[in-house]
Design a protein around this nucleic acid. Structure first.
Length: 755
DNA sequence: AGCACGCCGACT
DNA sequence: GTCGGCGTGCTC
C-alpha cells in the first residue's frame, strides 16, 4: 500500500527531543488504543486527555479521543503515523465523566473507543466543534476596491451587500436579516474574491429568557426531612432511596433538592425512564426555575442533541433532564443526580454491544464526583432495597399521598369456574357499572396490545405462526393485519385456514379487543385506549391525557404505558385483567416486574376524597406471590422475594453475566458457547477463581427470533471482583475463538433477563 | 466495524 | 473473459 510521505514518522526533525506519542481511542471494536505522533507542526508540551484528535486509520480518517500521552511507543517507529489535527482546545468530557467511561469500558467489557465515542452526540463524533461558531463576513482588499468602484455593476444585490460589508463586517444572522437570499449573493461575491468569511466561537441560540421562578406548595414534614437529608449531603457522595407512591410528592423533593444545588452554583442531572411519558415533569422543572431544562431523549435531531450537549459542556445548562444516555452528558459543575423511577428496566440498555445500566453508572459517577444521588420509586428494585439493608443507601420515605387520601382497596377476583363475558368476571362488570354510575373513571390494564394474541383454526387447530420466530402472530384489527411482536413481521389478516380452508377465529385478549368489548358493554362511557399502536407521538399522548383530565373520557384501557409517568386523578377503579402472565415465568425477575406493575397500576386509583378500588383477575388466587403482595404490600413482597433470591442464588446475592450468541442455525451458536465455556473453565482453574461458575450453554426459551437461533451461557459469581477478573481475561479469548466467526455474540453484564 | 485482497461460480 | 459471493486479515 502506497503511503504518503507526510504521514510517516521519518520527518521527525530531532531525535534528541523525541516527540510524545499520543494514545488515541478510536470507534472500533478493537480492544486497544492506537499510537500516533502529534500533528505536523504541533510542538505543544501539554496534552490534555479527553480532547478529540483527527487521525488517519487504514485508508480512512477517524475522529479519536486522546486517552494518554507516552514518551515512546512499543511499536516500531515506521508503523507510527502522524495525527492530522487536534479538534478541541479542552476535553469534551469532564474529569469524572472520563473516569466513568474508563470504568464502564472495564466493567461492561466493552471496547474503550466505542464507549468514549458513543458518549458523544453523532455530530460531535464526526468532529463538530464543542462550541457554536459565528461566521462573520468581511470584504477583502479587492472587495474594498470593488466597492469603491461600484462593482459588480450588473448585480445590484451583490453590489448592495458589498457596499454594506465595506462599511463593516457582519455576522451571518445580521446578513440574513438584512438581505433576502443573502447566501446566493455571498457565494458569488466570495467566488469573485471580494469577501471572505471567518469563524469565531459564540453561544448557541439561547432559549426564552428566564421567567420568574415560582414557589412550590408547602412541604409536608416527611418531604421536608427528605429534602434536608439530601441538602445536608450536597458536596459529598451519599446515595438515597426515596420511597413514595404516585402522587406522594417525590417530584417536590427533587425540585427542592435541585433548587439547593443550583444555589450552590452546581448543575443537576435528572434521569427518567421515558421523557415522552413525563412531559409534565419537564414542565414542572421549567415552571419552578423559570427556564426550560436541557432535555435529552430519542426524538431529538442530531443538531438539537449537539446543542444540548454543548450547553451541558459549557456549564450553561443548569438542569439536565434525560433518558438513559443522558448519564453521559458532560457536566463540569455537577452537584446532584436524581434518578426517577429507578426500578424501571429502560435504564438498562438492552440492545447493541454496550449494555450498560444508567442507574448503576449514575451511582458510580456520583461517587467519583463526591456528590449525592437520589433514587426515587414507589416500587424500588430489589437491588436497591438490598442496598438499603446493607447500609449502602439511605432510605427516605414519603408516606401515603399528599392530601391524606385513603389507600386503595385491593381485591382478588377468582376466575376459576366463572362464566366470563369478554374476559371480564361478573363481579368485575358489576364494579365497572357501579363506578361509572358514581361518576368515577375506570382504568382497565392489560399488558398485551393488538386485538388477540393468536389466530386459530376452529376445525384443524392450526395457529398462525410467525415465519421467522418461534412465536404466534398477533391480530391487529385496526388495520386487519397479523403482526409478530418479536420481529416486526406483518402480513394481511387471514379469514380461512391455509391448511383446511375452514374459518379461523381470534383467541385471547388484547387491548383492541377489550376496547371493542367495553364499548359494546358500556356504550354511554367514552373510552380512551393507551398503547403503542394508539399513541404514536407526543401529540397523541397529550390528546389522550386531555380527554381523561377533562373527565370527558370515562373508560381507559391500556398496557404498561398507563403504569408509567402519568397520573389519572379521576380514576376510582382499576381492573387488572390478567395477572397470570408473569406468575410462572422462567425468568427470575418476572415476579418483581409483575409486583411493580400491579402496585404502579393500583397507585393510579383513588385520589382526592374518593377511595380507590383495585380488582385483580386471576386463575391462581392462591399464588404465594399474589398473597404476599396483598397482605404485605410491596415491602412484604420484596422481603419474601429477596429471601427467595438469596436461597436460589440469584442477584443481588450473586453477580451474573450472560454471553449470548445467535446464528442462522442453532449448532454454530451452541458450539461457540461450548468453546467459550471450555476456555472459561481453563481460566477459572488457572487463576483459582473458584467463586466463578459457568452455566450452559442452553438455547434461549424462544430460540428462533427474526430467523436467527439464540443461545446463552451464564457466568455467575458470588464475588463481583472475581467476576470482573474473570471477564477481563475471558472476553478477549472468547473473541479470538475460531467459532466466534460464525456467530454474532454479546456479553451482557448484570443482565435484566435470563431466558 | 470498515475496507481491501483473494479465490471460486453465473453472466455480458 | 468479467462481476461479485463472502472468508481472511489488518488497522497505530
Amino acid at each position: 500500500v502506497a503511503r504518503h510521505a507526510d504521514d510517516t514518522a521519518s520527518t521527525a526533525p530531532n531525535p534528541a527531543h523525541r516527540e510524545p506519542v499520543l494514545k488515541v481511542a478510536l470507534d472500533t471494536p478493537l480492544r486497544r488504543v492506537f499510537d500516533y505522533l502529534p500533528p505536523a507542526g504541533d510542538a505543544r508540551h501539554e496534552w490534555s486527555r479527553g480532547i478529540r484528535i483527527r487521525v488517519p486509520f487504514g485508508r480512512r480518517q477517524q475522529v479519536g479521543v486522546l486517552v494518554d500521552v507516552a514518551r515512546q511507543s512499543e511499536l516500531p517507529q515506521d508503523k507510527l503515523r502522524r495525527a492530522l489535527g487536534v479538534i478541541d482546545e479542552r476535553p469534551v468530557y469532564d474529569a469524572a465523566l472520563l473516569e466513568l467511561l474508563h470504568w464502564a469500558s472495564d466493567y461492561y467489557q466493552h471496547p474503550l473507543g466505542n464507549v468514549l465515542l458513543g458518549a458523544l452526540p453523532t455530530l460531535a463524533r464526526a468532529g463538530a466543534a464543542d462550541q457554536a461558531t459565528i461566521t462573520q463576513w468581511a470584504v477583502t482588499a479587492d472587495g474594498a476596491a470593488a466597492a469603491v468602484a461600484g462593482e459588480p455593476r450588473r448585480a445590484p444585490r451583490q453590489r448592495e451587500m458589498l457596499q454594506r460589508l465595506a462599511s463593516g463586517a457582519m455576522d451571518e444572522d445580521e446578513l440574513r436579516d438584512a438581505f433576502a437570499d443573502w447566501r446566493g449573493a455571498a457565494r458569488e461575491l466570495m467566488r469573485r474574491g471580494f469577501i471572505a468569511s471567518s469563524e469565531r466561537s459564540g453561544a448557541d441560540p439561547a432559549g426564552p429568557p428566564p421567567a420568574e421562578a415560582r414557589a412550590g406548595p408547602p412541604l409536608s414534614a416527611e418531604q421536608q426531612s427528605a429534602v434536608q437529608a439530601v441538602c445536608a449531603a450536597l458536596g459529598e457522595y451519599r446515595s438515597f432511596l426515596l420511597r413514595g407512591i404516585t402522587g406522594s410528592g417525590k417530584t417536590e423533593v427533587y425540585l427542592h433538592a435541585a433548587a439547593a444545588t443550583l444555589r450552590r452554583g452546581r448543575q443537576v442531572l435528572v434521569l427518567v425512564p421515558e421523557i415522552a411519558l413525563t412531559p409534565q415533569l419537564v414542565e414542572r422543572f421549567a415552571q419552578r426555575f423559570g427556564v426550560a431544562p436541557v432535555v435529552f431523549h430519542s426524538a431529538l435531531t442530531d443538531t438539537q442533541r449537539l446543542i444540548a450537549w454543548r450547553q451541558c459542556l459549557s456549564g450553561r445548562a443548569r438542569i439536565v433532564l434525560g433518558t438513559r444516555s443522558a448519564v453521559f452528558a458532560p457536566l463540569p459543575a455537577a452537584g446532584l443526580i436524581v434518578i426517577d423511577e429507578e426500578h424501571d428496566p429502560s435504564f438498562k440498555q438492552q440492545q447493541g454491544g454496550f449494555r450498560y445500566s444508567a442507574r448503576d453508572l449514575a451511582l458510580v459517577r456520583a461517587h467519583r464526583l463526591g456528590i449525592p444521588v437520589l433514587l426515587g420509586s414507589a416500587t424500588p428494585s430489589l437491588e436497591s432495597l438490598h442496598n438499603v439493608a446493607a447500609g449502602r443507601h439511605v432510605a427516605l420515605s414519603l408516606p401515603r399521598r399528599a392530601g391524606g387520601a385513603e389507600p386503595p382497596i385491593l381485591r382478588i377476583i377468582d376466575l376459576r369456574g366463572q362464566t366470563l363475558r369478554n374476559r371480564l368476571a361478573g363481579a368485575t362488570i358489576e364494579a365497572i357499572t357501579r363506578h361509572l354510575a358514581a361518576d368515577g373513571q375506570v382504568l382497565v390494564y392489560l399488558n398485551r396490545r393488538g386485538y388477540a394474541p393468536t389466530l386459530v383454526c376452529s376445525a384443524c387447530g392450526w395457529i398462525a405462526p410467525c415465519t421467522q420466530c418461534d412465536a404466534r402472530m398477533t391480530i391487529h384489527r385496526a388495520d386487519d393485519r397479523l403482526r409478530c411482536h418479536h420481529c416486526g413481521a406483518e402480513r394481511p389478516l387471514l379469514h380461512q385456514c391455509p391448511q383446511c380452508g375452514y374459518a379461523v377465529k381470534p383467541v385471547g385478549q388484547g387491548t383492541e379487543r377489550i376496547e371493542e368489548a367495553l364499548i359494546e358493554m358500556f356504550p354511554q362511557a367514552p373510552l380512551v385506549r393507551l398503547d403503542r399502536d394508539m399513541v404514536r407521538n407526543q401529540e397523541d399522548l397529550t390528546n389522550a391525557y386531555a380527554r381523561l383530565h377533562s373527565g370527558e373520557a370515562r373508560l381507559l384501557v391500556g398496557t404498561q404505558m398507563v403504569t408509567k409517568g402519568h397520573d389519572f386523578p379521576g380514576v376510582t377503579l382499576v381492573v387488572v385483567l390478567n395477572a397470570d402472565q408473569g406468575l410462572f415465568s422462567i425468568d427470575y425477575r418476572a415476579a418483581e416486574r409483575l409486583a411493580q406493575s400491579l402496585v404502579q397500576v393500583a397507585g393510579r386509583a383513588g385520589r382526592g376524597q374518593r377511595p380507590g378500588e383495585v380488582l385483580i383477575q386471576t386463575e391462581h388466587p392462591e399464588h404465594p406471590m399474589l398473597q404476599t403482595l396483598l397482605r404485605g404490600g410491596y415491602d412484604g413482597f420484596a422481603r419474601v422475594a429477596l429471601e427467595e433470591r438469596r436461597s436460589a442464588n440469584w442477584p443481588p446475592f450473586v453477580r451474573l453475566a450472560a454471553l449470548r450468541a445467535s446464528a442462522p442455525t442453532l449448532p454454530p451458536a451452541i458450539d461457540f458457547l461450548r468453546a467459550a465455556r471450555n476456555l472459561g473453565a481453563a481460566i477459572r482453574r488457572a487463576d483459582g477463581l473458584d467463586a466463578v461458575s459457568l452455566n450452559g450453554p442452553a438455547p434461549a426459551s424462544m430460540a428462533r427470533r427474526a430467523d436467527r437461533y439464540h443461545a446463552q451461557l451464564l457466568v455467575e459469581s458470588a464475588s463481583r471482583p472475581d467476576l470482573q477478573r474473570f471477564l477481563a481475561q475471558w472476553v478477549p479469548g472468547v473473541e479470538a475463538l475460531p467459532e466466534a466467526r460464525r456467530v454474532r455474540f454479546v456479553l451482557d453484564v448484570d443482565p435484566l433477563e435470563v431466558f
